[in-house]
């Protein structure tokens, strides 16, 4: 990889200042960024390691919200009793990311900021209607994801926390890509307090993570597998690669949604 200056600030303001340097890049846990750097696909002048900023770590319950610091690792989320009590789907999701070593370093903020089309977290953020809190503002998840590896974040903007509304029920059904073990097509399903159902799909869309309106509508009125059968999930807009055709991905959206329903029944 190309060389760069490495800095590990211990507070947010220092991090933001460092990110003001021309060519600076922020790193959460580095579990996706470092492999990218190894391939020389990115050439930062300064790498700002956010992992020492304690204020960005931690999980806390705030009323009907669960707030997870942007620098919280997947491992911390997976093993948190607060998360398991509030949003069990998030526990499942975090426990299925990568492998134990990746979970020990990778962070929720890093995952969301990268918006890899096969990453797990974006589906939860969308399905739960999370709010992404940054050093500058709050962004609704529905406005945050803007296509492959693209988000609403400005340069120098850092995800400090993610606020998740607490659903009445949630689950994450992951279907792995056979090689990378990322998501081939996975579904995060949340049943909200108002009775609405939200379905976040990752790994499938050619433009990245998305909510499936048809499934949400059908399930909000009839929370059953047969309701899923009645929904047409189009293969249009699904990505195509060695591991899955658009048609297969469309099928998996339905199958994983049905499994989510079964898991919650």
């Amino acid at each position: 990889m190309y060389n760069f200056d490495y800095t590990k600030p211990t507070d947010l303001s220092a991090a933001v200042e460092a990110l003001g340097t021309e060519g600076a890049v922020a790193m959460g846990g580095g579990q996706t960024l470092i492999p990218v750097l190894k391939q020389r696909l990115s050439a930062p002048s300064t790498l700002v390691d956010l992992s020492a900023i304690d204020s960005m770590k931690g999980i806390r319950r705030m009323g009907d919200m669960l707030v997870i610091g942007g620098g919280t690792t997947h491992g911390a989320v997976a093993s948190s009793a607060d998360v398991a009590a509030a949003i069990p789907g998030l526990t499942e999701l975090a426990a299925k990311i990568g492998d134990p070593q990746v979970r020990n370093r990778g962070t929720i903020g890093g995952s969301l900021a990268n918006n890899d089309p096969a990453a797990c977290y974006p589906s939860a953020a969308l399905a739960l209607g999370a709010t992404i809190e940054t050093n500058q503002r709050e962004i609704a998840a529905d406005d945050f994801f803007q296509g492959l590896y693209t988000t609403a974040l400005n340069e120098g903007e850092v995800i400090t926390a993610v606020k998740f509304p607490i659903p009445t029920a949630s689950t994450y059904q992951k279907f792995e890509q056979p090689a990378s073990r990322f998501s081939l097509t996975s579904v995060f399903l949340a049943k909200m307090g108002d009775g609405s159902v939200r379905v976040g799909v990752t790994g499938a869309g050619a433009d990245g993570v998305f909510r499936h309106a048809g499934l949400e509508q059908a399930l909000s009125s009839d929370f059953s597998a047969s309701a899923v059968d009645g929904v047409e999930v189009s293969a249009d807009g699904m990505s195509n690669d060695l591991h899955a055709t658009p048609a297969f991905r469309a099928n998996l959206v339905k199958v994983m949604t049905k499994r989510a329903i079964a898991a919650l029944s």
Binding site: G30, I34, D49, S51, G75, Q101, V102, N104
Partner: peptide, 19 residues
């Protein structure tokens, strides 16, 4: 390349020495 850093298992190929 797995080693333990501060008691946690990590991939030493995906962690900077400086960190």
């Amino acid at each position: 390349c797995v080693v333990h850093v501060n008691g946690e298992s990590v991939k030493s190929c995906t962690v900077f020495a400086s960190a």
